[in-house]
Amino acid sequence: MQLPRFLIGDNSQHPEDIFVIHLDYPRFIINLKDDELEFLEDIDKADKEDLAEETKNLVEEASRFYDTESEFYENE
């Protein structure tokens, strides 16, 4: 099965939150409401420093993904 890079997550326990899940390395969940980021795997300190810029770009990409998906469903 080919998984997409991003998924949108919804949870009735957190109706105000907007979760986007990134499924490629580094896997993470971001809450776009407050940009809180949770990595789904252990990342050592050296890798975290190396991934800092890439993670920033991925967060921006996650936000664009959500905007694109929202527009798709609004126009449907």
Rank of each mutant, 00 (worst) to 15 (best):
M1A: 14
M1E: 05
M1P: 05
Q2G: 04
L3C: 10
L3P: 01
P4V: 12
P4E: 15
P4Y: 02
P4C: 09
P4Q: 11
P4F: 10
R5T: 10
R5L: 10
R5N: 14
F6D: 07
F6G: 03
F6S: 08
F6R: 05
I8W: 04
G9Q: 10
G9D: 07
D10N: 13
D10A: 14
D10V: 14
N11G: 04
N11K: 03
N11M: 04
Q13T: 02
Q13I: 02
H14Y: 14
P15K: 03
E16M: 05
D17I: 01
I18S: 04
I18D: 01
I18M: 07
I18N: 01
I18Y: 02
F19C: 07
F19V: 07
V20Y: 02
I21K: 09
I21F: 10
I21R: 08
H22I: 04
H22A: 05
L23P: 00
D24H: 06
D24V: 03
D24N: 12
Y25S: 12
P26R: 07
P26M: 10
R27S: 12
R27K: 15
F28C: 02
I29W: 01
I30A: 08
I30G: 02
N31T: 07
N31Y: 04
L32P: 04
L32G: 06
L32D: 08
K33S: 14
K33A: 08
D34C: 07
D34T: 05
D34M: 04
E36N: 09
E36Q: 09
E36L: 10
E36D: 09
L37H: 03
E38C: 05
E38K: 12
F39H: 04
F39L: 15
L40C: 13
L40Q: 13
L40D: 00
E41G: 01
E41A: 12
D42I: 06
D42L: 09
D42F: 10
I43R: 02
I43S: 03
I43K: 06
I43E: 02
I43D: 02
I43W: 01
D44E: 13
D44K: 07
D44A: 11
D44W: 06
K45N: 11
A46Q: 11
A46T: 09
K48H: 03
K48F: 08
E49Y: 01
E49G: 04
D50C: 01
L51W: 04
L51R: 02
A52N: 09
E53S: 14
E54F: 06
E54G: 11
T55P: 02
K56A: 11
L58F: 03
L58C: 02
L58K: 10
L58V: 05
V59M: 15
V59H: 00
V59K: 14
E60G: 01
E60A: 13
E61C: 05
E61A: 15
A62C: 06
A62R: 01
A62T: 05
S63A: 03
S63N: 09
S63W: 06
R64G: 00
R64Y: 00
F65W: 07
Y66T: 03
Y66N: 14
Y66E: 09
Y66C: 03
D67L: 11
D67Y: 03
D67P: 00
T68G: 06
T68V: 12
S70K: 15
S70Q: 14
E71V: 14
E71I: 11
F72I: 09
F72W: 11
Y73V: 13
Y73K: 13
E74D: 12
N75V: 08
N75Q: 13
N75D: 15
N75S: 15
N75G: 00
E76M: 13
E76P: 00
E76K: 15
